[in-house]
């Protein structure tokens, strides 16, 4: 395994971990709202959240490139804040990964929250627990299988992305060159042996992740889309 491979693997793990943490923080309130609300905005927002499931990653990457780029609305803001532009940087990759893996974290959480129902919440209220107290001490423990599923899926899906990375991150060693891009490079250079090592490793990794998911968390089986 070359230094380039190792760099790509470490970068991928860093990206997937950071993305998963950000997604869990972001998606917990979003999924709670989607699971509980009767608002007419539930359907459109649910649909937007699910969009990355069906869009080709290149489409998502393209729009992100336009929006985050120097001429784009978000790009203008990041520049005026002195943050520069996000495309072709690690930060840009994190933003793109968060959007790309969003449904894989929101949906298991939303299903876990919905499955809890009103019963335990009302019981907690009659036992003097405030809504926040109830969320921390009743909802979170009861939704734990959903959190495990969401974290594993979010992490694994981020590891496996390619199209978005290529569009928004490019191919910069130690900044945006993740495993999937490294494999692409090896194949383009006709270095099939190196491509085999990384590809085989990724297959094994994905298998182990799913095995862990199904073995540790039988309730999650068939509990997600994607």
């Amino acid at each position: 395994m070359s230094d380039g491979d190792l760099t790509a693997i470490l970068l991928t793990l860093r990206l997937a971990s950071l993305t998963t943490v950000i997604l869990l923080v972001l998606c917990t309130p979003l999924a709670w709202w989607l699971a509980r609300t009767a608002s007419r905005w539930k359907a459109p927002i649910g649909a937007v959240v699910a969009l990355p499931l069906v869009l080709p990653p290149t489409v998502l990457g393209f729009y992100l490139l336009v929006t985050l780029g120097p001429q784009g609305p978000v790009g203008q803001i990041t520049q005026s804040l002195g943050l520069g532009v996000l495309p072709f940087s690690f930060a840009g990759l994190v933003v793109a990964s968060v959007l790309y893996s969003l449904p894989f974290v929101v949906q298991p959480l939303q299903q876990a929250f919905a499955a809890i129902g009103n019963g335990p919440l009302e019981a907690a209220a009659t036992l003097r627990a405030s809504p926040l107290d109830t969320f921390v001490h009743v909802v979170l423990p009861l939704a734990r299988p959903g959190f495990i599923t969401a974290a594993i899926l979010g992490f694994a899906h981020t590891v496996g992305e390619f199209g978005v990375v290529l569009m928004i991150g490019g191919n910069i060693p130690n900044k945006t060159r993740v495993i999937s891009v490294q494999i692409y490079d090896h194949v383009e250079a006709m270095d099939y042996a190196a491509a085999h090592w990384l590809s085989g490793g990724l297959v094994l990794f994905s298998f182990l992740v799913l095995l862990a998911l199904y073995a540790l968390n039988p309730a999650a089986r068939g509990n997600y889309r994607g």
């Binding site: 019963g119 335990p120 009302e122 019981a123 907690a124 209220a125 009659t126 036992l127 003097r128 627990a129 405030s130 809504p131 107290d133």
Partner: peptide, 14 residues
């Protein structure tokens, strides 16, 4: 509800 000094027993024990 959580500020009311009451006990509530539901049909299903919850």
């Amino acid at each position: 509800t959580h500020q009311r000094s009451l006990g509530y027993v539901f049909q299903d024990a919850r």
